[in-house]
């Protein structure tokens, strides 16, 4: 009857088992997995950072748009006030409150000058937004 060799050489077996256990502690291809995991984590971090940044910028853009809208509204209101202040009734009211009186034709003495660049007729005066020649 044959006797299994394993039972005969326990020391050999023990040595072999020790070698086997050691292999579990070796990195071998496991290092690759860890590297990939770290890379993934870094990429995830970058993605999150980017997402946060995009959100921040989006919020800033919206805030700037709101600010711009508010400024445009303010500008329009100022234009309205300017236009109201430029109306003849408003000017007359201001003039009256200031104690000024309208000049009568008889109060005015005309000095007739020869036309020159300094005495351009009203029609030749530059219009709003135009540059003087």
């Amino acid at each position: 009857m044959a006797i299994p060799l394993r039972q005969l050489i326990p020391l050999q077996q023990a040595r072999l088992r020790r070698i086997e256990i050691g292999r579990y502690f070796k990195l071998d291809s496991g290092s690759g997995y860890i590297a990939v995991a770290i890379l993934c984590a870094l990429m995830g971090l970058a993605l999150i950072t980017q997402t946060v940044r995009v959100a921040q910028v989006g919020e800033e853009i919206t805030a700037l748009h709101k600010q711009r809208t508010a400024l445009v509204r303010e500008q329009k209101n100022l234009k309205l006030r300017v236009a109201q202040a430029q109306s003849i009734p408003y000017i007359l009211d201001y003039v009256n409150k200031s104690g000024m009186v309208p000049a009568n034709q008889v109060d005015v003495e005309y000095v007739v000058l020869e036309p020159s660049e300094s005495t351009l007729p009203v029609d030749n005066l530059p219009l709003a937004g135009e540059q003087r020649p």
Binding site: R73, K76, N77, K79, L80, V82, A83, L127, A128
Partner: peptide, 18 residues
């Protein structure tokens, strides 16, 4: 915004306001 209507000297006669 609708355009502005002005008189000959540029004063606004009609404009949009919010």
């Amino acid at each position: 915004p609708r355009g502005v209507i002005r008189n000959r000297f540029g004063s606004a006669l009609a404009l949009d306001v919010e």
